[in-house]
């Protein structure tokens, strides 16, 4: 029994330490970000790797999620004779929750893990040390651009995910089932609020972007410099990112939609 508590205690303590390290690392990144902004092409390069290369999976998944939402939504709504409200349903669930969260999870496993692996391997092969020895700060040169690449990509990817999803819902509703096109869009517009739904969703995805990018660069930079260490770091990136996204989502949702 005592063992369980002892284990729990040490787990909690190491968790707090880890959070402290991440926070300090975050401050370091912010401090050296200025240097990497001066050379924008570094960040643009990372935008390519985390953004452009995630495009395909985000667009395809968004479309499928929209198709499923459309079918399920129609199935439920037609029982109440209000199938033209399916646009509203698809749009709201995508904008508020599914877009940011699912895009965030996909982003963590597609781009976050890649960033961790890349930085981790640079550490294993002493590239970071060599850079440091050449008086080039690895946090400014390697970490900060990857961090900002992720932070910028994430909201754009989430918006693309939601857009594709709404398109999928429209395909099911208007093209296949024959819901009236005008009713589909006008019901949606009437129910979806720019500030409460769209902006809150964008805000969420921006927060997820910061969380995932931070976890990814931190795990890579902090990994044990061996093959095994890197593979563990990648696993931790995906797992911690997913937990962070879901926890943050819960916290933000409870603040954002308190009034409803």
């Amino acid at each position: 029994m005592g063992d369980v508590f002892r284990k729990l205690g040490s787990l909690a303590i190491s968790g707090v330490w880890q959070l402290g390290f991440i926070a300090r690392f975050f401050v370091l990144i912010l401090r050296y970000s200025g240097q990497s902004f001066m050379r924008l092409h570094l960040t643009i390069r990372e935008l390519y790797f985390s953004g452009v290369l995630s495009l395909l999976i985000i667009l395809v998944s968004g479309l499928f999620v929209g198709l499923v939402l459309g079918l399920q939504g129609y199935e439920i709504l037609q029982r109440y004779g209000s199938s033209e409200a399916m646009g509203t349903m698809v749009a709201l669930s995508l904008l508020r929750e599914l877009g940011p969260v699912v895009a965030g999870l996909l982003f963590a496993s597609r781009a976050g893990s890649a960033v961790t692996a890349e930085i981790g391997l640079m550490k294993v092969t002493e590239q970071l040390k060599a850079m440091d020895m050449m008086a080039v700060n690895p946090i400014a040169r390697v970490v900060a651009p990857r961090f900002w690449g992720g932070v910028v990509s994430m909201p754009l990817l989430a918006a693309l995910f939601s857009t594709m999803g709404i398109f999928g819902g429209w395909l099911i509703g208007v093209v296949f089932i024959g819901v009236d096109d005008g009713a589909f869009w006008s019901q949606m517009r009437a129910a979806v609020d720019f500030r409460y739904d769209v902006l809150n969703g964008v805000f969420k995805s921006a927060v997820f972007g910061v969380a995932v990018a931070l976890i990814a660069v931190f795990e890579g930079y902090d990994c044990v410099p061996t093959a095994e260490g890197v593979s563990r770091a990648i696993t931790r990136t995906v797992v911690s990112s997913a937990l962070a996204i879901l926890a943050l989502d819960f916290v933000m949702t409870s603040f954002m939609f308190r009034g409803l």
Binding site: L55, I166, D193, F194
Partner: peptide
Amino acid sequence: FVAMGIAALLFLALKVASIS
């Protein structure tokens, strides 16, 4: 990529939502 993302945001803001 950035243009697509911004276009998606605009679409969400103008076509999908109304500004209360």
